[in-house]
Each structure stands twice: as C-alpha cells, then as structure tokens.
Write a protein that binds this DNA or RNA. Sequence first.
RNA 1: GGCCCGUUGGUCAAGCGGUUAAGACACCGCCCUUUCACGGCGGUAUCGCGAGUUCGAUUCUCGCACGGGUCACCA
Length: 550
Amino acid sequence: MDYQRLAQLLFPDITTTPEDIEKMYPPRNLPEGAKVTRVAPSPTGFMHLGNLFSAIVGERLAHQSNGVFFLRIEDTDLKRAVEGGVEKIIRVFNHYALNFDEGATIDGDNGAYGPYRQRQRANIYQTFAKQLVERGLAYPCFCTEEELTEMREKQQEMKINFGYYGEWAKCRNLTFEEIEANIKAGKPYVLRFRSEGDPNKRFLHRDLVKGDIELPENDQDIVLLKSDGIPTYHFAHVIDDHFMGTTHVVRGEEWLATLNIHLQLFRTMGWKPPKYVHTAQLMKMDGGSKRKLSKRKDPELALDFYNAEGYPVPSVLEYLMTLLNSNFEDWRMANPTAPMNDFQFTTKKMSNSGSLFDVDKLKDVSKNTISMMSAEEVYNEVTTWAKDFDQQLYNLLTADEQKAKAIFAIGRGGAKPRKDLAIWSEVKDYVAFFYEELFTPATEYPQNISKEDTLAILNQYKGIYNPADDGETWFNKVREMGEALGFAGKPKDYKKNPDQYKGHVGDVSQVIRLAITGRTNSPDLCSVMQILGEETCQQRLSQAIETVSR
RNA sequence: GGCCCGUUGGUCAAGCGGUUAAGACACCGCCCUUUCACGGCGGUAUCGCGAGUUCGAUUCUCGCACGGGUCACCA
C-alpha cells in the first residue's frame, strides 16, 4: 500500500504540514512550575456540579502556580450543541468566580493558542490525521452503523471483547483500489487509528489522584475523524492539549477507561502527555445505594438549581472544596475569615472514591459562610438574588434599604453570630413579619396563660412600651410588669417553685413576641421592635388585644 | 461479560504496622438562655469478608463479596 497516495486521496485539500502547525504554537513561556489547565465542556447549555467540581481543581492548580487557566469549547458533536450554550457556560463560570486567563469568549477568542472552539480547528486535526495516514497508522473505515451493531451482537454472543479491533477490523486491510472505489461511490467513512497495542500487555500510569494504576494497552481501532471530518474527543484532546500547552488535565474518572487510548496517541505522535488528575465522581444516595448523580433524575445536579434556591456562590465553592480537599475544613476552622483562595489546594489530598453529595452539609457550610458576612453584604447578595427570583422580596427590601440592613444586622457580628440563614430563598420567611405585606398575625396564644392574663400583659405593655428603651431597660420593664402580674422574674425561680407563680418572664415576653411578630420565635425582640417603629408596634399590640378578646 | 477504580460510623472523612481509631454534618441528651438561633459539654455509631505476612494488622499481599465507572461516528 502506498500510504502517500492514500493520504492524498483522503485529504486532497490539506496543504498544511505538521511543521506549519508546530510553528503556530510555540511552547508557553511560563515560570518554572507554572501549571496550565483547562476546562473543556461541550456547549450543551447544561452546567452541573461536576463541571464546577473539576473546574475548581483546574483553576486552583493554575492560579496557585502562576499558570494559565483557559476555556476550550468541545463542540465536535453537533447533536449536543445548544443555542447559547457557550454563553451560558461562560456566564456560569463567571458567576462562580472562576476566571479564565485565556480561551473562548462569548463572541470570539482571547489568547494566542486558539482557536478555542474545536470545530474551528478542523484543519489542524486533519493535518495530523493526514500525517497518520502517511505513516500507515490510520485508515478509512466504511462500515455502516448496522454492520457495527451486528458485529457487537456477535461479539456479545461469543462472549469476547466488543469493539473494532484485530480481525474484527474489517476495513483495516482494504486495498487502495477498494478504498478508491468506495470513495468514488460516495460512501461515507470515518478515519480509524491502526492500533498496534496488545491488551495482554499492561503498563503503569501515575495519576495525580488515583496514584499508580495498571492499564492494558489499547487494541481498539478507535475513530479519529468522524465522517464529517471532525475529530472524536480522543483525537481532539491529544492534539489540543499538546498545542495549547496543557500541563494538567483535570477530568472526571469516567475518562480513566479511555486513558490508554490517549496515552497511546500521545506516544504515537511523539508528544509528551500531560499529567492527569482524574477526579472522583459526585454520587447521590438512591434507595439503598450510591450512584452517580444523573442529569435526568437529580435536579440538584444542575447549577441552575443552586442559583434558584439562592445558595451563595462562596457557600457552594466552600462546600465543594471540603469534598475536594479533606483538610480544607480544618483549615477553615483555623482561619474563619480568610479568603478561600488562601488555602493551599493540593491534589495529594483529593479523595479517590466518589463522595455522596450532602445537602445538609452544604447548608451548614452555607450558614457559616453567611454568618461571616456583614449586613451590607447580605443585603447586596439577597437583593441580587431576589431581583431574579423573587420580585416581591426585591421590592420590599429595596424600598427601604436602611430597614433591610437593620434587619440583617440583628445578631450579626461578634463571636457568636446568629446562623439563621443558609440560602437566600429562606430570607423571605425570615423577614416576613417586618413587612405589613407579609406579616401574619398570631391567632393562637399560649394555653398555659389565662385569657385575662394575656390581655393584662398586652394592655399593660402597651402602656409602658417606650421605643427609646435599650435592650436592658426594655427587658427590666417586662420583668417588673410580669412580676406584678404573678410571673417569676427569673425562669429558675419558677422552676424551683412552679406553684407559686403563673409562669415566668419568658412566658410574658412570649405573649408580646406573638403580638409583635406573630410567631413563637424570633431574633431579639427589642431589636425587632426598634426596627418596626412605635406606630407599627402599637398597632400590632392593639390588634393582638382585639384578637385575644374575641 | 472484559477491563479499570474503589470499600473506615447514616454522610464527608483523618489515619499510612502498635492510636482510648481524630474532626465535621446529621441525630439524641444536658447546660447556657425571655423564644429562636448561636455557643459549651456529653452520647449513640465505623475499619465489607476470608486467608496470608508479622510478635502485632484499619494500615502490607492475595482471593472473594459488594459498590462505581467504561466498553459510540457522545463528550
């Protein structure tokens, strides 16, 4: 077989040479130890936790080493592409504060190693495909889909390995004349790699997460170029990451199975492969067992979900980091206010088995994260969220900014900040009683206090209430009033001699709380009343008296 | 079915030949407390199974079981 002639037949239009391409992509000029990583999603428009999960790894690796973090769009499969998909990807990564130094942008490219959309690199792939044909390492395959399924079925029956390899590779030994005739007849074909691997031979590979693993050599004649001349993932990955200078490939462990193909391709091309970081899958509990999070069944896989629920960006990032690096939590406890990026991320501390995604834990992390924010920050975050997801809340909060900030300031700061909020969608309920539009007056008052006493508390309190009182003065007044009505001034006294009292000061304040907030629990009542203002408080007290009287 | 990876409490996990087997979440109890939230203290609960190596295995080796992944002109 004259491979030169075959290459010319297959790629008559390819005039560039591998050398031309090499010249276009000089090695990067980076400091020693700088890592180049990338995120390479297909533009399906669906962004999920897994994307974020490994993107964080890539981002940290690159930016911790003064390297480069770039975005490449893997749009080799037209079927997966969705209108606006690229834009969405970029928007989401932006939202999660993962900033690319280089790569695809919404309307183009940024960087010297592009183009960063694989479809635009067709010529590059074909140049090397042609070279492989010339070397006798690639050949056209005219097998139809039907033929391939038939083959697979037969293999299944025979209980041997599936795939296109060895003697099953029918098109492997087509003569030049046969190929030429097929092409002239207009038969579609793919370009396959002629594998010389022997699966009985193993080789050792060192993965940065998985450690040393033994892999069998690949003997599959995998598809390099699809019938439309666009490469498969395998071929594109090898070429792109070589020319783009990727030093560390971060991807899900589902790629481990095809790693032997990629390594084989790198060797064949004579290129140094990157280091690989195969991250463990995120799992979820389903029935009694763990399983990979699924796009179809699990709404919590989509990043949109967290957005809509109002999980703050740093909360999600912090949580994922706790899964990513087991020592992150300890570090966080020792450095509660430090920026997350001060943490030294390392692949050495990455778990090599899939972790269950735990919403409870996420919420706990989020509570802590939010509790460290200032009232100002909370206000800004909440309103930004509400603008998109809760117009009513947005209007309420922004109508009186000072009031909203005062609400968020209750119990904030200090050594033991309140931790009421885990997600922004909880805010509405949390602040409801501060706003007439959302306030629900109580209809039930405590059973353990007589109607007369309840009314007495309410009426008397109405008289002594002074909006200017500070917390201590306020509480002393309530206590004195309660004592006069037969309630213990201290809960302990009541507990010691329950028969001597009608109840204790807590019961008294509970009645007031119910009147003011409509609920049995609330943040510091005095602060609440200060925010509500005299008029509203008096009005609610009157309203309560009416309710109880009925 | 072949191949690859994995297996410490309900969950995330530390551990790397000798430990009372950390810590966090969740759960339970107590304390603090005008409610709630916070905080403090304590508790329940873990090394998948079987061999082997060893004076000694959660740690090393080998089987088994179980879980996961993958075997496309998808990435």
